[in-house]
Computed example of a mutant assay.
Amino acid sequence: MKIYNKLVRDRIPEIIKEDGKECETEIVRGIEKQELLEKKLLEEVQEYIEDKNLEELADIMEVLFGLANELGYNEEELLKKRADKLVDRGGFKEGIVLKQVK
């Protein structure tokens, strides 16, 4: 039996069982959940850096939604904050590198 001890998407245990396998799970909350989400974020960012694809970007977004939820915000609030900052400060589409300010 392989041991993971990592946060997985909500349907993973169900998918494992549908595949005829058994798994052991635990529900975490509070600071433990937040820490595991942060660890998962680093994992997903590393996977994106290695693979550079849309699926990995979607995984990062899902972890961000989970973190927002853990901090008491919902997806809409996170997306609204992103939109507000986009209007106020812009995005990262242009590739502008600030070299110095005099």
Rank of each mutant, 00 (worst) to 15 (best):
K2I: 12
I3R: 12
Y4D: 05
N5C: 06
K6A: 04
L7G: 03
R9P: 02
P13A: 05
E14W: 05
E14S: 12
I15F: 04
I16Q: 03
I16R: 04
D19P: 00
G20D: 10
T25R: 01
T25A: 00
E26A: 12
V28Q: 01
V28A: 01
R29S: 13
G30W: 03
E32V: 11
K33F: 10
Q34S: 09
Q34L: 15
E35I: 04
L37N: 05
E38H: 11
K39T: 13
L41M: 13
E43R: 08
Q46G: 10
I49R: 15
K52P: 02
N53L: 07
L54A: 11
L54M: 13
E55V: 11
E55Y: 08
L57R: 10
A58E: 09
D59T: 05
D59F: 05
M61H: 10
V63T: 11
F65T: 01
F65G: 01
L67Y: 04
E70I: 02
L71N: 14
G72M: 06
G72P: 06
E75P: 01
E76C: 04
E76Y: 11
E76N: 13
L79W: 04
L79M: 15
K80E: 15
A83G: 03
A83Q: 14
D84V: 09
K85I: 03
K85G: 03
L86C: 03
D88V: 00
G90P: 06
G90R: 10
G90Y: 08
G90N: 07
G91Y: 07
E94Y: 10
E94N: 13
G95V: 07
I96M: 13
V97L: 14
L98I: 15
L98P: 01
L98A: 10
Q100S: 15
K102W: 08
